[in-house]
Write a protein that binds this DNA or RNA. Structure first.
Lengths: 233, 233
DNA sequence: CAAGATGCTAAACGATTGTTCAACGCGTGT
DNA sequence: ACACGCGTTGAACAATCGTTTAGCATCTTG
């Protein structure tokens, strides 16, 4: 109930400034002084509020996690991708958050692991729902499929630069998302291959090499997630 | 033709040490002294050979690019994913390279752009071949599909930690790749949905909102690359 | 009004950073 | 034998880093 200074509390201003800079330039490339300047405070105050630079990072991580995943209701009740939809809906405003989350997911922090696990279980339960509703066919392996669907859903965040560049934009815009929607939905609906010759070939190859499984699998020809071409001609 | 000292030239030893550390810890978190120590030389020699730390990074980038994309023959002649297959075939030895490439792709450097463009055009020509060979059906949008197939193929590199964790491993191993092969091939063969209701719904929604296209697209409900559920109940 | 806690700043500290510089060893050519 | 260029080192540089400290202002509490 305190008199709202300008906008929000000083501690929150520092945290938000840190999220912007950590997301844009990375944690190591961002100095405490830069955060302090952007927040309009002195460097010492940053340490006073968060103990250390790592403490500031931890506070940012926690904030991100329970601001966007702590909405357990939306998340656990089916829709992991709904979250990402919301983020991408008004990209302009969410850009700092998106950048920060993207950096989290490619780093190795417990917070990033928790965030990803939340998204993954959400996607898994969504798949369960849709399969039992008859909307989705039964995948070959529900767990692994849910894992990859989650990973693929995060591609627009983690590799946003290459995605935007590939579509002739300089950053993720609503136009980029618009142009992506149908091709991806087409891929998820009809698949990519005309028949299942690659699938059965890989199945046979894996079964053939699963018995005498040497720990160095340099001789089994099909361990690739992408189409093996290897035609006999 | 020079007498092979121990292994390779000093300049190459420094470059390889830098690739290991840049890939493992990141560019900003790696000091010139750390590179020098790992290479067994003095810090001054690193600068003497590469001019500056940024020069060292540029040399590493160039080396990576034309070591793995400069094989234009393999790449341009169809198989972008063949490259990634090779990398993942003996993961253990390629780990430093994989880490470095993963960091490149999520950074914003011209070298990373060149590398990605090479992979993308390779994937695109592979799709062209397979479509005209009747192996692959005609995608809804060849260019955008090729872009996303390329991005998806890089997921095991860029998000290797979450992928490995999701499969109960602590790093990318041949076992992780083996367990991934069939589910992904299944997804690319049969798709995910039982019918095309989402696809046509998204098509109609996009056509409906494409006319009075406001620059803030906050009201069009379907801009998501992931399945919109939005059922009326 | 006195007293103490709180938010905050300015200045400074030691450590580490990227980089420079003078010097040394050592083959090679003259 | 002498000079020179090249690869290399170790010490030193200024700059910047995260963090500490002393102190000021403001507000609350008794």
């Amino acid at each position: 109930m305190r008199s709202s200074d300008d906008d929000r509390t000083t501690r929150a201003r520092i945290r938000d400034a840190a999220i912007v800079l950590f997301g844009r330039d990375g944690f190591d490339a961002t100095s405490v002084r830069a955060v302090a300047t952007l927040a309009g405070v002195s460097p010492g105050l940053v340490i006073h509020h968060f103990g250390s630079k790592d403490g500031l990072r931890a506070a940012c991580d926690d904030y991100i996690v329970d601001e966007f995943v702590g909405r357990k209701s939306e998340l656990a009740s089916g829709r992991a991708s709904a979250l990402i939809e919301q983020w991408l809906a008004d990209v302009e405003r969410m850009t700092p958050l998106i950048d920060y989350v993207a950096r989290m997911l490619t780093s190795s922090s417990p917070s990033a692991d928790a965030l990803f696990d939340g998204l993954r279980t959400g996607t898994a339960s969504m798949i369960d729902e849709q399969v039992s509703a008859g909307i989705m066919r039964e995948p070959l392996d529900r767990d692994v499929t849910a894992l990859y669907i989650t990973l693929y859903g995060l591609v627009p965040l983690v590799m946003q630069r290459q995605l935007a560049r590939g579509l002739g934009a300089d950053r993720i815009t609503t136009e980029v998302i618009r142009r992506s929607t149908l091709p991806i939905l087409d891929l998820y609906t009809h698949g990519l291959y005309a028949d299942d010759r690659y699938l059965v070939a890989a199945q046979e190859a894996l079964e053939r090499s699963s018995g005498p499984r040497s720990d160095k699998g340099e001789n089994d020809p099909n361990q690739d997630p992408d189409p093996p071409i290897r035609r006999a001609s």
